[in-house]
């Protein structure tokens, strides 16, 4: 399946991607960020998930199909299927 991606930073560290092809029919958002993180080349680990992997780190804002992830019922366990779009926004602390 193919997940469309959009971000305001380089998702893979040195390059950006606007989609990702996966050999599964569905995947959770949590699993997706683990895959992206594992493929990223940033020197310092850019952790997407908090320590107990129940939420994203506060520097991230994610929309799934235009909907704020934090308002999705299942949060990081939201199921993604073929053609879904995930927007990643990185906002450094105090962003203003």
């Amino acid at each position: 399946m193919k997940i469309n991606l959009k971000s305001n930073y380089l998702l893979l560290g040195s390059v950006n991607i606007d989609s990702i092809d996966l050999d599964v029919t569905e995947i959770t958002l949590k699993e997706l960020v683990r895959i992206i993180s594992s493929r990223s080349t940033t020197s310092a680990s850019l952790e997407y998930l908090n320590s107990d992997e129940t939420k994203l780190q506060p520097v991230f804002e994610v929309h799934v199909n235009g909907r704020i992830l934090d308002l999705c019922e299942k949060g990081v366990d939201t199921i993604l299927t073929d053609g879904d779009t995930v927007d990643f926004y990185l906002e450094p602390p105090y962003g203003g």
């Binding site: 930073y9 990223s40 080349t41 940033t42 520097v59 990185l90 450094p92």
Partner: peptide, 8 residues
């Protein structure tokens, strides 16, 4: 920016 992790 290649190293956003370091920046954060």
């Amino acid at each position: 920016t290649a190293d956003v992790g370091l920046l954060i």
